[in-house]
Nucleic acid binder design. Structure first.
Ligand SMILES: [Mn+2]
Ligand SMILES: [Mn+2]
Ligand SMILES: [Zn+2]
Ligand SMILES: [Zn+2]
Lengths: 141, 141
DNA sequence: CAACAAATGCAACAAAGTTGCAAAAAGAAC
DNA sequence: GTTCTTTTTGCAACTTTGTTGCATTTGTTG
């Protein structure tokens, strides 16, 4: 049951269990791939205020339930984090893929981002790899 | 003289030479590092309408004068392309760095993005590498 | 179930981005 | 330089996106 998973996740991160949070987390669990704020607003329907969506995503980010995926078009997408992530400590060192055809963003969990050797003076704290192209389901059609 | 460089670049890309375009291109040439739409609006002063800045950046992008740098905070930055870039054909395969302290974004032209081996079914068209951390000038202070 | 803390919706607002259109400026031709 | 044509600009009006304060509602704990 997806419903118990949702509650479990919220409990584990010490977020109080509300309808809005349950619904949004459910969306992430059901939907393969990442979701933008807009996606969520649409999918969650008229049931929740726009402000609640903002605040929920914010809370999920802070608690390490989700991580954000950068983009070149001013529409950040979010995806569920794996077990290892928690408040403060994220371990989202995988490659992200954005399909130029369907627009979907996916976490390629199996691809660990390479380490980048920076010029003298620079210190890396995080590395993001963002690949765009044609995704699996688009190329099989 | 930076002024002749500016005109030359605009001519080369078949953009008519206007005050606005000259000013904005000048900003890119003077400023080491990338600029966001907001940065440009501020630096260009009251002299130009907000809409003009949007349209100018749009035109520069299309002509391959500048490229955009993705971000996780809904504030795309832009940086000058090198000679090799032209309308349609971009060759911006270098690493980008964003400083968590001063917020500046830089093109690390000398670092070519690694090639990423994708899972079966995926085709890569572009790879972006976005490193965040502490930049050279911030760490030397 | 009572008491407290936290989350929500609403309204009002600020910031960011878009569009149509008339006026102004640039480019081309003479 | 003058004229003609095309492109760019500024303005206004508008939409979309994101933020904040506050009263009401909901969840949590004992
Ligand atoms: Mn991911
Ligand atoms: Mn660059
Ligand atoms: Zn696709
Ligand atoms: Zn810095």
């Amino acid at each position: 049951m997806i419903d118990s998973k949702v509650t479990e996740l919220l409990k584990k991160t010490q977020l109080s269990v509300t309808d809005g949070r349950r619904r949004i987390l459910e969306l992430f669990l059901q939907h393969e791939g990442a979701l933008s704020h807009g996606d969520i607003e649409k999918k969650a329907g008229e049931k929740f205020d726009r402000v609640t969506v903002y605040r929920t995503l914010q809370a999920f980010l802070e608690k390490g339930l989700i991580h954000s995926i950068p983009s070149s078009d001013n529409s950040i997408r979010y995806a569920l984090c794996k077990e290892e992530c928690s408040e403060g400590h994220h371990r989202d060192d995988h490659v992200h893929f954005i399909c130029n055809q369907c627009g979907n963003a996916t976490c390629l969990e199996e691809l660990v981002v390479p380490s980048i050797k920076l010029p003298r003076g620079y210190t890396a704290q995080q590395v993001e790899v963002l690949v765009s192209g044609i995704c699996k389901s688009c190329s099989s059609r």
